[in-house]
């Protein structure tokens, strides 16, 4: 009926019904990320104990790509160790750059729904906003 767009069910569902879009009171780590090309912004909140991401959430305004990407990211990293989260982030960035293998994309589970972004340069910044913010928290805020 319609031309095929890359908005698949996974992406649409995470955008319409995000699980992790809310505030966390007393979040240990909190960082704002801004996409300078459109002004969209996101606040990432994480509670990390004993090197494990116990809980996480995000708030902000953005397109479906940035919102779904943030929600999927939190699904993937909650319960993981900081090092595991860093590895997942690296894999995601590889997928967006179009250099990840099929096996690597499989490891990204639902985040694989964003693989087509590697052919959409205009949307890369939307997809990586939350991941870039996460990476900054994990590498700079945690010493």
């Amino acid at each position: 009926m319609y031309n095929k767009s890359f908005y698949n069910e996974i992406l649409i569902d995470h955008n319409m019904n995000p699980i992790h879009k809310h505030d966390i009171e007393n979040a240990v780590c909190k960082l704002d990320g801004v996409n300078p090309s459109c002004g969209d912004s996101l606040t990432l909140m994480l509670n990390i104990e004993d090197n494990i991401i116990k809980n996480g959430s995000f708030t902000g305004v953005g397109c479906a790509v940035s919102q779904a990407s943030a929600d999927i990211m939190l699904d993937l990293i909650i319960g993981k160790t900081v090092d595991e989260a860093k590895e997942i982030t690296e894999l995601f960035m590889k997928m967006i750059q179009g250099t990840a293998t099929e096996e690597e994309i499989e490891q990204l589970e639902e985040a694989g729904a964003l693989r087509d972004i590697s052919h959409m340069p205009a949307r890369v910044k939307c997809a990586v906003l939350s991941w870039r913010t996460l990476s900054e928290v994990l590498t700079k805020q945690l010493k």
Binding site: N3, S5, C63, V65, C126
Partner: peptide, 21 residues
């Protein structure tokens, strides 16, 4: 629906418009 998504869908239907501020 965020304007970027509006523009993306129109683009997939072969329509060029501007989105943003």
């Amino acid at each position: 629906v965020h304007p970027h998504d509006v523009s993306e869908i129109l683009s997939s239907d072969g329509i060029c418009i501007r989105a943003g501020h």
